[in-house]
Design a protein around this nucleic acid. Structure first.
Lengths: 207, 207
DNA sequence: ACATAATGCGAGCGATCACTCATGTTGTCG
DNA sequence: CGACAACATGAGTGATCGCTCGCATTATGT
């Protein structure tokens, strides 16, 4: 029986002191992931970086994967918060304006912590967090689909489920790739150009 | 001095026997990556799976990363071969037909060895192969841009460099995500629908 | 002040891993 | 055939890793 390592925190911290410990561990994990990568971030190194003993680490997290999963979850919460806010803000706007705004937000979101985002994107499959991340993505699809339904009048007849998939996947890929692998595309004032292009891509597809 | 592990093969095999050994090693590596994942694919396991001793493994590859890099390179060569062939075949066709064909080919390409493709996509950053892969991607951009230049008459005025980035990134993301994470989208005859949608997305963007 | 629970510690255990080297086997070529 | 190179072998080495456990320190409730 090959058992997937547990990724749930071990117990909740109740005192101020221990909450600080847990925080320090997550921060240290994020820092080490960015600075050294997943492989070199051993539990001993993480504990050291956090100024805490390994023993304490294992009081709260049963494995290295659990720690990384905690970092991933926190990061994803932040991203989804941004996405939710953007879709709420945009709910009453026409598709043209709405899509433009969403693209801009996606770029900003990828800029929050690009290096961390990159490492996490690479290591998610190893932490058994794929499903959790898929859940976030599905929420994004659902929110966007709901927006499309509200603005059906502006759109051609189409399977909105599929349209949401196409739009969200494209936005995500274009912004992710541009920010992480094609910095030159976002140099100076070129960001506006990318936003224009991405917006055009989606608008003409939807209408 | 943190040194990146070497990824170059150690020496060339000159006899028939040793070429078989090298082949067995690469095949075994690919098989183990798919079946067990990167972490569990130790050099000892790989050698065992290949029916070869660890010593022989190290005669030809200086590290585990080198072996995985070899698998990645071979896989990418295969993919680029498909892409090159498709773009050659499509060179004289109008954009509508051409784009449709390219999308279909991209889906097929992802279906060649989806599990291996997935594992490799996840592990590329750990093998120092990012640059090599980036090179392949740039070739794809360049080939597509060349096609667009030849068909400028059918398109709106636009920065073709950027247009190629938008198109290639979108095609890749849509097909990759659909095949690897959204199998239901490609169930039965739904594949045609995805091709239709992706084609519409790009055509209306380009024209 | 005292008892009890919560938290923190870190040396060290067992397992595993990447990799070497001394030695044996097979192919090549005059 | 003989001699030399190419190739194959796998037990063993040192390093590292994840993780535990017995004990010390600090907070909480009474």
């Amino acid at each position: 029986m090959a058992r997937r390592p547990l990724t749930m925190p071990r117990k909740a911290a109740s005192q101020e002191r221990s909450r600080a410990t847990v925080d320090a561990l997550i921060e240290a994990t994020a820092r080490l992931l960015v600075r050294e990568g997943f492989d070199k971030a051993s539990t001993n190194r993480i504990a050291q970086e956090a100024g805490v003993s390994v023993g304490s680490l294992y009081q709260y997290y049963p494995s290295k994967e659990a720690l990384v999963a905690a970092v991933i979850d926190r990061h994803n919460q932040e991203l989804m918060e941004v996405v939710r806010a953007a879709l709420a803000e945009v709910a009453a706007l026409p598709v043209e304006k709405a899509v433009r705004k969403l693209v801009a937000v996606a770029i900003d979101a990828h800029r929050i912590a690009p290096k961390l985002h990159r490492v996490l994107a690479e290591q998610i499959p190893r932490t058994g967090r794929l499903e959790k991340v898929a859940t976030f993505n599905r929420e994004y699809y659902a929110l966007f689909k709901a927006y499309l339904e509200d603005h059906r009048g502006e759109l051609r007849a189409v399977d909105l489920e599929l349209a949401a998939f196409v739009c969200v996947t494209s936005i995500e890929a274009l912004t992710h790739t541009a920010v992480l692998h094609r910095a030159e595309i976002l140099a100076d004032d070129a960001t506006g150009t990318l936003i224009d292009e991405a917006t055009r891509l989606l608008i003409r597809y939807l209408k």
